[in-house]
């Protein structure tokens, strides 16, 4: 009998304690972020899909199609094509396809790249209407990006502004994406 009464009292007390905890939380400020209205900063090492990097010296992609990334990829999602252009010392990339439908964002390609010619983009709003939207031509993407940054100097060389524009887009994708 005494045990039963004790259990009832302690049980009831435990319920009161629980309710005290939740009411305490009730009056604390909210912790969620109202996503489309406010966004969080992307982590510095954020692993998005990859993108090609421009060479500041030439204004061309750093990539010279060594295909190390293609070989490192566990899911076969990268296809690189390169050719030796006339007068150039090294090969240069002519097409860089990323099949993002297969990519698992492991980052092996970036690690495999010895020259820092690819890096993670900071795109995260990756919604599309069809599967084809995710078979990306990174070479074209880079050109478009460069065009958007400074349309009059597409085939110009060594434009510091262009590099800066690409870097800016890289750094602050959050804001540009949402406006």
């Amino acid at each position: 009998m005494r045990n039963a009464v004790k259990e009832v009292v302690s049980g009831f007390y435990s319920l009161i304690v629980g309710m005290r905890v939740t009411i305490g939380q009730f009056f604390k400020p909210i912790v969620t972020v109202q996503y489309p209205h406010e966004t969080l900063k992307i982590a510095p090492r954020f692993r998005g899909h990859i993108e090609l990097v421009l060479d500041p010296a030439t204004g061309k992609p750093k990539c010279f199609a060594c295909k190390l990334c293609e070989r490192a990829c566990p899911s076969d999602c990268i296809t690189v094509e390169g050719a030796k252009l006339e007068g150039a010392k090294k090969r240069s990339v002519t097409a860089y396809h990323l099949d993002f439908t297969k990519c698992s964002l492991c980052g092996s390609c970036v690690e495999a790249c010895r020259d820092g010619a690819i890096r993670f983009s900071r795109d995260y709003n990756l919604a599309g209407w069809s599967k084809e939207d995710f078979i990306m031509d990174l070479f074209k993407r880079l050109e478009l990006e460069a065009q958007a940054a400074s349309p009059e100097k597409v085939d110009g060389r060594a434009v510091p502004g262009l590099i800066a524009a690409q870097d800016a887009a890289h750094q602050d994708k959050t804001k540009t994406d949402l406006k």
Partner: peptide, 13 residues
């Protein structure tokens, strides 16, 4: 709204 506040989120907004 109440559930939201108990769970530290704003509820419908």
């Amino acid at each position: 709204k109440g559930a939201g506040r108990f769970q530290r989120r704003p509820g419908p907004t």
